[in-house]
Design a protein around this nucleic acid. Structure first.
Ligand code: FES
Ligand code: FES
Lengths: 150, 150
DNA sequence: CAAATAAAGGATATATGGGTCTTTTATTCG
DNA sequence: CGAATAAAAGACCCATATATCCTTTATTTG
């Protein structure tokens, strides 16, 4: 009778957290005032230790910057600010999210298409190219104007 | 150094299998010649028992038809053939896949948008409406023309 | 009816993403 | 320098999706 749905999603939870965290840092941190994982976790309602892991991963890949010790924390340097969103998604969820076949076939191309390929490829690509053009800085600025939530 | 990517996806594996299976049935089965889970699993290279579970779920929701016993198997009746793809996705992955916020926020609407909302909502909706208009029958017909793979 | 067949159903195992905890390293400050 | 602080790192646990196995039910055929 009832169904056991898998509850799929476009971006993994790690990736969603990563994006929200990066935007938060972009908005609240400066070179003089760093943001700690603690504060971020509370404000964004993300499990603290899990968020730490994610931030680690982002810093390792140089998408955010950090310093240890008292008054340490995370911030974005000039390069970090210009990171495009697709880079963050790539680091968190791997490449291939935007390349892979919707039906999970091993290959995806117009010369080797699945039945859905030509139906949906424009949306996948559109989404991808949008994220490719969008920087963290720009995204953070959206939060200022209008009632944008994190 | 290295990253532990989550390898996300738009549709769950169950859902991908379901779609491929339904199209396969649409192409190969008729009221006189039913298709067994065995044959399907081999042709589509899907774990047999897992596929069975998925087909069960689809029949329970009346998206495919089946009969037991010798020469039993699966087929699509006239109603099943007109099932739209979004229904299959809904049954397998739950509703909300096309309604949920990309960043995982509890609400998604133009009055309560996240920073990405207005950037990506058109692609999500476009994808959704495409699947909403597309029937199993139509999808199966694409396989005939051109080199379409399952 | 009995035997064979194939789906339905349920119980269980495995892999992975999500989440927690503890220890180590680097930095600041008294 | 030593204490305090916060990120980095690694070990570990839990929930869920994925996958497998076994039993039951329905149907066909001899
Ligand atoms: S081949 Fe399936 S989406 Fe391109
Ligand atoms: S609110 Fe995030 S996508 Fe709509």
């Amino acid at each position: 009778m009832t169904t056991t749905q898998s509850e799929s999603h476009v971006l993994s939870k790690s990736c969603q957290y990563a994006l929200r965290a990066v935007v938060y840092v972009a908005r609240h941190a400066s070179s003089s005032h760093l943001i700690g994982a603690q504060e971020m976790a509370e404000s964004l309602e993300i499990p603290k230790h899990f968020l730490s892991k994610i931030l680690q991963q982002l810093t390792r890949n140089q998408l955010v910057s950090s310093t240890k010790g008292p008054h340490g924390g995370f911030y974005l340097n000039d390069v970090n600010e210009l990171t495009t969103i697709d880079r963050i998604v790539e680091v968190m969820d791997g490449p291939g999210l935007f390349k892979a076949c919707v039906l999970g076939l091993p290959e995806c191309s117009s010369t080797h298409p699945c039945p859905l390929h030509f139906e949906v490829v424009e949306y996948r690509d559109g989404f991808y190219h949008k994220l490719k053009r969008l920087t963290v800085k720009e995204l953070a600025q959206f939060v200022h104007k209008g009632q944008i939530h994190l």
